[in-house]
Write a protein that binds this DNA or RNA. Structure first.
Length: 606
RNA sequence: UGCCCAAUGGUGUAAUGGUAGCACAACAGAUUCUGACUCUGUUUGUCUAGGUUCGAGUCCUAGUUGGGCAGCCA
């Protein structure tokens, strides 16, 4: 594996390629460390808690961590931050693995590190103390057998041993304060805390109590293990933070082995250390935790280089909600069909919607990395999705809201095969045959009996080009007894077909169509933004900002070649938008297409 | 009235003491067998006040505004 070889693709501007690696303050720091040869290898990690599905905000973190790894010939560990058994579930573990693979495959899968299933950290004695290291399997692309993500819960034994070491050094103690009293003793941001009455217990007493905590002698909430730091620190997180709490609860990975579980602050820095992480990148809210992160590691006399934490501003996209609590609300209240509803900004939803991983990566990388809390306009996201799909999607003809059009000068039963281009953006465009004949279907919107000003499409007496076929002229319209338009009757100028004498003739509009006799039917789900407000939260109740038209389902008529559509393919239904098969509900013979995104429509806006 | 962090066009981001640039958005036009794409042009910016310097978006001080921190959550 050569980092350089991959980096050549990183700077390629061609669509579908990895985005160019930008410069940002974290990459600058890493670059300096590389120049100094501070570490043998750059090692990052992506550490989600398995208590929800990954979303677009996680995508930014994944692209940052894996991006830095791949740009520096390093690796990135996928680690479940699973220290709170009462909030987590294996369903989430599985979805996270799926989503991470999907996002990094073909881009940074050579940096994706897992560990061998069931293998504990290696231990060796250094200067009389045991040191722990969890060896990675890297690369571990999708489907590698016998590997699994790293789990903080894999280190419960080691983290416990480190807790004992802290107690032995007189730097941690067992506190009997109730949760309420612990809060009172902590003070407030502008008021110092006071020492716990249990702060001065002897090492022997602390060791004994900690052993009994672990043995299950005490009920939930009765005792904690706390770091002995400084109750008057201006930083709340240095006021003797809780390191371990009692939770008589089964863990989704370790079962009933434990009834005490380490807190995030204690487990995270140690997990980083055990895995040999060099750069521990997290979001801004952990900035005030950094002194604690450093304190724990520095007070354990660890023999290997310590990891360091760097913080960046998380992604906040407009018109979306990424709060785990609110996502769960939408799922539980059945506002959406599930965690992978194509309207959700979850990675599963985005994938099901038909967005290519390359597009998500381009967006997640393109938004940049700073310490400024910003709102990213959803238009930036929509732009990369369109741009990516424009370059790759197969052009097809589909009519969402059909109306019959009869070409009166074409004999009944005559089938004319026309050549249609698959993708005009490709260097050597391929074509396919599309059947054309006397009776076709066009979009109801593409005819106007009373056209508004500057209307380019079909109108009584007017002409228009049928894409890939010929120019037609509208002679008459047929209405039913109720006055509804039921049929448009036109004459076709067959000489205006490609290669014909009138091929170069200019008409103002070109519309799409399908042959009535050959078109297949399919369900098409027209998705739109889930929220109408840029900041759905702004008004207090985000459900008030829900877009009532975020999903419209239609029975569409498609050109016959779409009957052979595959899951991997992306389509542009010409003049309409980008579409892909729904991975969940589409079946052979009963196809379901999802609209990933519409084409830009400057006419509708005017 | 504590501590920490941040502030560049409408939005996001770059400029590492030396010409404020890019992307998205918007607007105008060209082109077009997709009212898409593409192309051309236009509008709009360094939070404020001092200081250092030949020179400050960048360094310093103060202020303003915004964000974060008081889970036995992560």
């Amino acid at each position: 594996m050569s980092a350089e070889a991959h980096d050549t693709t990183a700077s390629s501007p061609s669509p579908g390629a990895a985005p160019a690696a930008p410069s940002d303050f974290i990459r600058d720091i890493v670059a300096q460390h590389v120049a100094e040869q501070r570490y043998p290898q750059i090692v990052t990690r992506f550490p989600p808690e398995p208590n929800g599905y990954l979303h677009i905000g996680h995508a930014k973190s994944i692209c940052l961590n894996f991006g830095i790894a791949r740009e520096n010939g390093g690796r990135c560990n996928l680690r479940m931050d699973d220290t709170n058994p009462t909030k987590e579930d294996v369903e989430y573990v599985e979805s996270i693995i799926r989503d991470v693979h999907w996002l990094v495959d073909g881009w940074a899968d050579h940096c994706l590190a897992f560990k061998k299933h069931g293998v504990p950290p290696e231990s060796r004695v250094v200067n009389g103390a045991t040191d722990y290291f969890m060896a990675p399997v890297c690369p571990a692309p999708s489907g590698t057998p016998g590997v699994e993500p790293f789990f903080a819960s894999d280190y419960f034994d080691q983290i416990h041993a480190y807790a004992v070491r802290l107690i032995e050094k007189g730097k941690a103690y067992i506190c009997d304060l109730s949760p309420e009293d612990t809060e009172k003793y902590r003070g407030a941001p502008d008021r110092p805390g006071t020492d716990s009455p249990f702060r001065t217990r002897t090492v022997a007493e602390n060791l004994d109590l900690f052993a009994r905590m672990r043995a299950g002698e005490f009920p939930n909430g009765t005792r904690t293990l706390r770091a002995k730091i400084d109750m008057s620190s201006p930083n709340i997180w240095l006021r003797d933070p809780v390191l371990y709490r009692i939770k008589h609860a089964a863990h989704h990975q370790t079962g009933d082995a434990w009834c005490i579980y380490p807190m995030y602050d204690f487990a995270h820095c140690l997990s980083d250390y055990i895995e040999g992480i060099t750069h521990s990148i997290c979001t801004l809210e952990f900035e005030v935790h950094r002194p604690l992160y450093d304190w724990i590691l520095e007070n354990l006399d660890l023999p290997r280089p310590l990891p360091h934490q760097y913080e960046f501003a998380k992604l906040i996209p407009s018109h979306m909600i990424v709060s785990k609590r609110k996502l769960i609300h939408l799922v539980n209240e059945k506002v959406v069909s599930g965690w992978d509803d194509p309207r959700l900004p979850t990675i599963s939803g985005i994938r099901r919607r038909g967005v290519p991983a390359t597009a998500l990566r381009r967006f997640a990388t393109g938004v940049g990395v700073t310490k400024f809390n910003s709102l990213t306009d959803i238009a930036v996201y929509e732009h990369v999705v369109r741009d990516e799909l424009n370059a790759t999607a197969l052009r097809r003809l589909a009519v969402l809201d059909p109306i019959k059009l009869v070409l009166t000068n074409i004999p009944v039963g005559q089938i004319i095969e026309v050549d249609a281009t698959d993708n005009p953006q490709s260097e050597n465009p391929t074509t396919r045959k599309v059947p054309f004949g006397r009776e076709i279907l066009i979009e109801r919107d593409d005819f106007a009996e009373v056209p508004p000003p500057k209307y380019f499409r079909l109108k009584p007496g007017g002409d228009v080009r049928l894409k890939y076929a010929c120019i037609i002229k509208c002679d008459e319209i047929v209405k039913d007894a109720a006055g509804n338009l039921v049929e448009i009757r036109c004459t076709a100028d067959l000489d205006s077909r490609a290669g014909g004498p009138n091929a170069a003739k200019k008409v103002k509009g070109t519309i799409h169509w399908v042959s009535a006799a050959h078109a297949i039917s399919a369900e098409v789900r027209l998705y739109d933004r889930l929220f109408t407000a840029a900041e759905p939260d702004a008004g207090g109740d985000f459900t008030k900002a829900l877009n009532p038209d975020s999903l419209k389902i239609v029975q569409a008529r498609l050109e016959p070649s779409l009957g052979q559509a595959t899951m991997e393919q992306r389509f542009q239904f010409e003049r309409l938008g980008y579409f892909a098969l729904d991975g969940e509900d589409s079946k052979p013979g009963a196809l379901v297409f999802n609209r990933t995104i519409s084409l830009k429509d400057t006419w509708a806006k005017a």
